[in-house]
């Protein structure tokens, strides 16, 4: 008997699994494979009071904040990696536009430990990082304590259990068993820490393809609530082996979101007035899409699982 497919459209996956008020992990693979298509669907479906969790998200957190979807950010870094600051994030913190944004500052390591603790099912993990910093003073999920087994101070990093992790991957089967390669960041722990996972895949493949290389299966399907087939859903961030980073798009976002009015125009043009991802690709135009394509493939040597 074949298990029921978990394939959904992006619209249905977001509608069914990501309600307002929930805690969402995005950007687990740092500058690669950021689930922009899912983030844009959250904006179109007018989610509110989301808590965003992630080490960094390049410009996705900035967009969600600017669109008014977010009441809390728990992150190590919010901005535009190749261009600088995120103007929506700054407006929200400095001028309360939109209002009520709470920021909980982490470092990358403490974010990774919080998700690892969640993945291990323990309430906290110890570390030396952040000792002496103002992150430790201001983030209530980082607490100094005295080691019970060694004579020293440590920081307890409280476990995080996001309601949903949205992870863009190279390929998955219809059950959500997913192959990821390249930039992993906190994806493996993020998938296990979260209460449910939405996998967004460049390609949907047969289970036999997944089982042909089980070391590369970083998300087992039983953790996955929905699988979305959305090629290019990570644009403008790159997907190793599928398309390159659209550096110009990040620079344009920086220029076109400096003022609030300009951001609203940007949001209308690239998110609100866009029906779905195929519509988005049309707006990007064939020249740009072609320009981002992989110029030279570099396949790994096959691993022999024979016996």
């Amino acid at each position: 008997m074949t298990a029921e497919s978990k394939l959904l459209t992006m619209r249905d996956a977001i509608a069914r699994h990501v309600p307002s008020g929930c805690m969402v992990l995005l950007g687990a693979q740092l500058e690669q494979m950021i689930p922009f298509a899912a983030g844009h669907e959250l904006i179109r479906q007018s989610r509110r009071d989301l808590t965003l969790v992630g080490p960094i998200s390049d410009i996705l957190f900035d967009q969600l904040i600017g669109a008014g979807c977010v009441s809390r950010v728990m992150a190590a870094w919010v901005g535009n990696v190749s261009a600088g600051v995120g103007y929506c994030f700054r407006r929200a913190v400095e001028r309360s536009i939109p209002p009520r944004l709470e920021v909980v500052d982490y470092s990358n390591f403490t974010m990774a430990l919080a998700l690892h603790a969640g993945a291990l099912g323990v309430p906290f993990l110890p570390t030396y990082t952040t000792l002496g910093s103002d992150l430790l003073k201001k983030n209530g999920n980082l607490r100094e304590f005295y080691s019970p087994v060694s004579e020293e101070k440590l920081v307890a990093v409280r476990a995080l259990r996001p309601d949903v992790a949205i992870l863009h991957v190279q390929r998955a089967d219809a059950q959500g068993n997913a192959h990821i390669w390249g930039s992993l960041g906190v994806a493996v722990d993020g998938a296990r820490a979260a209460r449910k996972v939405i996998v967004v895949a460049e390609e949907i493949v047969e289970p036999s393809v997944i089982a042909s290389d089980p070391n590369r299966t970083l998300i087992p399907g039983f953790l996955v609530a929905a699988v979305v087939h959305e090629p290019g859903g990570a644009h403008p961030s790159p997907v190793q082996g599928y398309h390159n980073r659209d550096h110009a798009f990040f620079a344009e976002y920086h220029e076109q979101t400096r003022r609030l009015d300009d951001f609203e125009d940007w949001l209308a043009r690239w998110v609100v007035q866009i029906a779905d991802r195929s519509d988005y690709w049309k707006r990007l135009g064939p020249g740009r899409v072609e320009n981002l394509a992989v110029k030279e493939h570099a396949f790994s040597a096959p691993a022999d699982f024979g016996y």
């Binding site: 919010v78 700054r90 913190v93 920021v103 990358n108 990082t129």
Partner: peptide, 16 residues
């Protein structure tokens, strides 16, 4: 007040 992007991994590197 100007809000800047935050630590990223900088705090970890500076500590360790």
């Amino acid at each position: 007040m100007q809000r800047l992007p935050g630590s990223g991994g900088a705090c970890d590197i500076a500590c360790l």
